[in-house]
Amino acid sequence: MTAPLLEVEDLRVRFPLAEGTVEAVRGISFTLGRERLGIVGESGSGKSQTGRAILGLTAKPGEVTAERLAFDGVDLMAAPPGLRRSLRGSRMTMVMQDPRYSLNPVMTVGQQIIESYRAHKPVSRREAKQAALAMLEDVRITAPDRVMALYPHELSGGMGQRVMIAMMLITGPELLIADEPTSALDVTVRGEVLRILDQLVSTRGMGLILISHDLEMVASFCDRVLVMYAGKIVEELASGALGEARHPYTRGLIGCLPKLAGDSHPLPVLARDPAWAR
C-alpha cells in the first residue's frame, strides 16, 4: 500500500466579504489514489472551489485552511509559493470548463502547447514541437500539424476541449483536476472526450478528480463519487451504486431528473432540508 497521491483533511475555503464571511467549502476530507474520483454538486456547492484550493488557485480575498493538504507527501499548506508554482502545471494540473474562455485567443494552439511544455521542461523549441504533435495525436486530433497552426476561435468545442487536455497532460502530471470538462459539449462529443480522458488516465496511471453537476455521467465514469452540498460532502458512493444512495439530497437529485425509461408527471421536486447544510 503506497501513500495516497492526495490527502485532504478538513479543507475550508472562506471569502471575507463586506456583508460577512462566506464559507464556500466547509471542512471536507478525502484521499485520492491513482483512481478516478468524481465530485458532484449543484452550483454553489463548493465543488469548483475545492479543485481550485487543491491547486492553490483560490481567488483573492479567499482564504484556504486545512488540517492537512498533501500531494504525494508534500505538505501543500506549508509549501512556499515557489514550490507550489513548480508543482502546478508539471505534476498537478486542471482542465477548465470552457475552452472558449480558457485558451488564449491571440496565440495559435501550437504556440500555447509549446509554451506550457517549455515552462516546465528545459527542451528546445523543436523538441517541444515534436512533443506537442505527439500529444495532439494522443487526444485523437487528426492532422495535428494543421491544428497546431489554428487559433482557438477556429476550433469546435470538442476540439478545443481536447486541445486543453493535451496542453494540461503534455508535462505528464500525476494529478489532473477536470472542472466540468464536458458541460460545454454535446452528448455525442462528451462520450468521445471522456473516453480519451479515461484512456490517458489508465495508461499513465494518473489520479483524476472529475468535477461535474451531472450525477449520472460521473457515476458511470468514476470509481468513486463524492456528493457535495453547501460546502460539505454529504455522501460518498461507489461507482454504479447510485441506486444505493442513502442521503435524501442525493436521492432527490437522482429523482428530479427526467428519465427516458419510466415516466413521471409531474417530476418530483427536491425539497431542501436546512439540516443538510449543518
Binding site: 449543484e42 432527490g252 428530479c256 431528473l257 409531474p266 421536486v269
Partner: peptide, 15 residues
C-alpha cells in the same frame, strides 16, 4: 439551470 431547478421549471411548463 441546476437539475433540481430544471425539474421545477419543467413541471411549471407542463402545468
Amino acid at each position: 439551470l441546476d437539475a433540481s431547478v430544471q425539474a421545477e421549471i419543467l413541471n411549471l411548463l407542463e402545468e
